[in-house]
Every structure is written in C-alpha cells, then in structure tokens.
Design a protein around this nucleic acid. Structure first.
Length: 497
RNA sequence: GGUGCUGUGGCCGAGCGGCUAGGCGGAGGUCUGCAAAACCUUAUACAGCGGUUCGAAUCCGCUCAGCACCUCCA
C-alpha cells in the first residue's frame, strides 16, 4: 500500500503532505498553451510533467478533475500589455480567420501530446468560450474598487490590492521594489502604474478579435481567463495549480490577485511549477532559435540533432530527471536514453508474458531475495510519493528489471522468489511503467522491413521444398494479418481481407 | 540592479548529515556455434577555499562559474 504523498508547494516553498480539500476528489488546473504556433519540446516537458502528476494521483485512487485551458485570445505580443494579440497577428499573417489559427494549432497540440502518450484533461476550456464570464469578473473587480477603466480598457490596480493583500506571495516579489526597479516604463500612458495589468483591452480598428462589453468593443486580458475558468470548473478553492516556472510571474501572481479579489480566497492549495528544458545550458525558447518541434525530433531533421528520436525515448529521457530541475538536451543524453528506454521496455514485454512456473524443490524461497524485492517495490512508491521523483523510480525499476531478466533466462528460479512476491513484482513493474510513467511499447509501424527478409526466407524454403518451414512462415504472417501470394512474377504480400 | 536556482565520475542524472542510486559509455567475467541480449564483478565523483559536526556531496560562510525570472514565453 502506497504511503503518503508529499508535494513541493511553490506557494509555501516547502514540501507538504498532500491533503485534498475533498477526498477522494482532486481538482487540478494547469495553464495550457497559447495556440498561435506549434509547440516545441520545452512546452512538451511541462505537459508531460503534469501528465505524470495526473497519472499518479489516479494511480493512488483519487478521482481527479484535470482542467487545462487553451489560450486563444488575449495573449499579447510585447511587453506591458502593449502590442498585438498573438493570435490576431498570426491570423493576419496567414490570411486566416483567427479561429482557424486557433483550430489549426489546437489540433496540432493534441496531436503532439497524443504521440507522447500524454492523457487528455477532463475539461479543456478556451478563453474565447468564456468571454461572458470574464466580463462578469471585470465588472466585479471594478465594483470592488480594484480595477479602473481608461479609454475602453480596464486595468487591475495592483497597489490598491496590495494594501490589504500581498501581491507577490507566490514569486517573492515586493510591490515597492517592482515599481522602483522596473525597466523603462514610459509607454504606459493609460495605466496608473506600470505594474497594473490589463483585464480588458480596447480593440483597435484593425484588431480581428473583438467582443462587445460595457466598456466598448474589446477583448479580455491574458491573466483573467485562468482565474475565471479554474474557479468555474473547480470551485473557488481547488487542490493543485500548475504551470511552467516562467509563468510564476507575472501570470500566476496576477491570477491569484484576481481570484482573491473576487472570491476572497487563494484559489489553489498547492502550486506546482515545472522547470525548463535547456539546450547547451540555455532555456529552449522560440525567440532564441534553439527550439525544435516534436516533428523535427521524430525525423531528426533539425541541425541540432544527429539522428531521429522516438516519442517514448523523449518521454523516458524527460522522466529520468526531476520536473523541478532544469534538464539539458543533448544528442549524447538522448542516445543513452534511447538504450535505457529499450531495456526497460523489453522487460515489460517479458514480464507481461511471464507466468510463475515450476516450483522447484531444490531452490526454496530465498528470504533475503524476497525481502530485497519487497524493499525495492516499496521504494518505487516512496520515490513517487516524494514529490513525484520519477528519476528515482526509474532507478528502482531497473533494479527490478535485473530480477525479471534473471527469471527470464533461468539464472533465477521462480521458487526462489515465491508466488506472492512474483505477483507483486509483476504488478508493480507493469503498473509503474504503463500507468504511472506512461511509457509504452513502440512497435515498428513499417512492417515491410520485417516482411522483406521474411519473404526471402520463404522463397528459399520453397525452393528447397522445406514445406514445413514454408507453412510456418505463412502461418506466422497470417497471424499478423498478412497473407503471402505466390504469383508467376514472384512472391507478393497483401493485408488479409 | 532586484529575486531565486544550479554546479555530482567520460556523458546524462538522483541523492539533501552516516548506508552501492540508476541509465549510457569503459574494463573483466559467465552464457553462446558466432554474435546479440541477459546476468555477475569492477574502475572513475561530488566547482574551489574555509567552518560546524564523532561524521558533509548533503548544513553555514566566502570565492569562482553558469542559469532563470523581473518583458511574450511551458
């Protein structure tokens, strides 16, 4: 039985015992992508990290409602609430309707996550689907006296909020310092203070995404959607809120300020922030030009890559580090991960088929061994319970794998392990790899690479009149849905109809 | 300038006061027609300098190197 789960809470900067508000239910909100372009591998890391959190909570028996949003409006291009909306800009560039851009990249996003075996969330709300709710929130914030309207835009007044609350609880920032040490902030004609942030922006003439509001035609600010949607689907208070490190400030800070202002409560109990994927020690990001797309990775087409890497290799690679550490991408590390992954997954194939067999009186149950295996099984749980330490878990799984392989090739007899321990070993290994870590077998799709040499064998056997062999090959292919066809022109194959 | 983080053997990467992490790679061995796989054994570490402690990779101080956030970013 797994013990207690501890989570590092960014809000308190401490590891805390996980006690959901309303067990067995758990509410988890994770900030999703802005769908204005393809997601890169760094983005994938974040969603992968939360996928494991989601999976492990389910594994522990919680009923999880996982909400991950799609940002399809309001995310501005340049600094300090100025500049164009990212989606809007892309739409102009591609000569598409903004919602076409949104759909295109949302589809792509789903596609990519699916390849990495990342489970879909239970609810995936979009910002544009919640304009009405967002307008309601802006109204509330104005009536609370914490927001003000200027020229058809509405801003959150951070200073005022900070009098009664602490703007900066999460990121450890102090408002006074923020105001002093800010960068050139001369462009903020509208705002009272540079640190104020937009709740609603007036749409200029050419702006493509526009909605009617009490303040005129406009669109919602970026931070608002998460406050609105998280509380709508998970309640004023919920258990886990997650996102990448780089969202901590200002995005999550603003979110807290908004939610506290409207509901009077800090929205989430546990905040989880995942760390960045780096390349040569630098954060992977589009602007630095060191990012690559999952698709480029799968076919090895990017200059930084010297070979293709499969989705599960990448998944394994990422799980070998802790979500809270930076992870550096390199070809060497990926190649090592590729081998490691295959080793682990070969073990999965073996143990799935393996049955306890042949009790053997000469080798009675080895008490030491049994204790050792039990200990490692417990260690797997303990590792995951300790703030989702997937790297350690994998380490333990490799130790279990040694026993599995030894059983497989007869270096260890089943009776030494005993039925009970064997069952537990099998269950743990499969459960952790498949359900918790979300790793799966990658069966080669291109069957032709097996087919051709097999067909050669078939021809040889036929030529030598080894019909037993011929029939065997035929049967085995048939089992895979392939039929061989003897024709005058040679041997061909077809999918069985 | 402010806030925070990191520095582990050839590479990646856990560990956060005493006990072999692990993977890849290296060396030796077992098995095998050969090979591969697998199994067993093994070497190579905690950026530097001080301090606390019976004991430090792990705590404290300083130094050096690097990163992230403070602007859009997962």
């Amino acid at each position: 039985m797994p013990g207690e789960l501890y989570i590092f809470n960014s809000l308190t900067r401490k590891k805390e015992k996980f006690e959901p508000y309303n067990p067995p239910f758990v509410g988890m909100y994770v900030c999703g992508p802005t769908v204005y372009s393809d997601i890169h591998l760094g983005n994938v890391r974040t969603f992968l990290s939360f996928d494991v959190v989601f999976r492990y909570l389910i594994y522990l028996g919680y009923k999880v409602r996982y909400v991950r949003n799609i940002t399809d409006v309001g995310h501005l291009e340049s600094d300090a609430d100025e500049g164009e909306d990212k989606i809007s800009k892309k739409a102009k560039l591609m000569n598409l309707e903004p919602m076409e851009v949104v759909q295109k990249y949302t589809n792509e996003f789903h596609n990519v996550l699916h390849k990495f075996n990342i489970l879909p969330p239970n609810i995936e709300p979009s910002a544009t689907g919640h304009i009405i709710e967002q307008i309601e929130w802006v109204k509330k914030l104005i009536s609370e006296g914490l927001a003000y309207e200027v020229n058809g835009s509405v801003y959150f007044e951070v200073n005022k909020y900070n009098k009664k609350n602490h703007y900066g609880v999460l990121s450890g920032r102090v408002v006074e310092e923020l105001m002093e040490s800010g960068r050139e902030l001369d462009r903020q004609e509208e705002k009272k203070e540079a640190i104020d942030f937009a709740l609603w922006k007036k749409a200029s003439e050419g702006h493509l995404m526009r909605w009617n509001s009490p303040w005129g035609i406009g669109f919602p600010g970026w931070h608002l959607e998460c406050s609105v949607m998280s509380t709508k689907y998970l309640g004023d208070t919920f258990d886990i809120h997650g996102g990448g490190m780089d969202l901590k400030f200002p995005h999550h800070e603003c979110e807290i300020a908004q939610s506290v202002s409207v509901t009077g409560k800090t929205p989430a109990k546990y905040w989880i922030h995942t760390n960045m994927l780096t390349v040569n020690g630098q954060k992977m990001s589009k602007s630095l030009g060191n990012s690559f797309l999952p698709e480029e990775l799968f076919c090895g087409s990017h200059p930084l890559l010297d070979q293709p890497y499969s989705p599960m290799t990448v998944r394994f690679f990422m799980l070998q580090s802790h979500y809270s550490s930076t992870l550096d991408f390199s070809n060497e590390a990926m190649k090592a991960a590729c081998k490691g992954y295959k080793k682990l997954i070969n073990g999965l194939r073996i143990i799935r088929e393996m049955q306890y067999e042949n009790p053997d009186a000469e080798n009675p149950e080895n008490e030491q061994l049994v204790i050792q295996i039990q200990k490692i099984i417990d260690a797997c749980h303990n590792a995951m319970n300790d703030n989702f330490n997937t790297a350690l878990t994998i380490g333990h799984l490799f130790t279990l794998l040694k026993r599995i392989n030894a059983l497989h090739n007869g270096l260890l007899s089943f009776s030494e392990v005993g039925t009970e321990t064997f069952d537990k070993l099998k269950e743990t290994y499969i459960d952790f790899i498949v359900n918790v870590l979300g790793l799966k077998e990658e069966k080669p799709e291109d069957i032709s690479q097996f087919l051709l040499p097999l067909i050669e064998l078939y021809k040889d056997a036929k030529f030598n009149r080894q019909y037993e062999k011929v029939d065997k090959i035929r049967a085995s292919l048939k089992a895979s849905g392939i039929v061989l066809k003897d024709m005058k022109t040679g041997v061909d194959w077809a999918y069985e109809e």
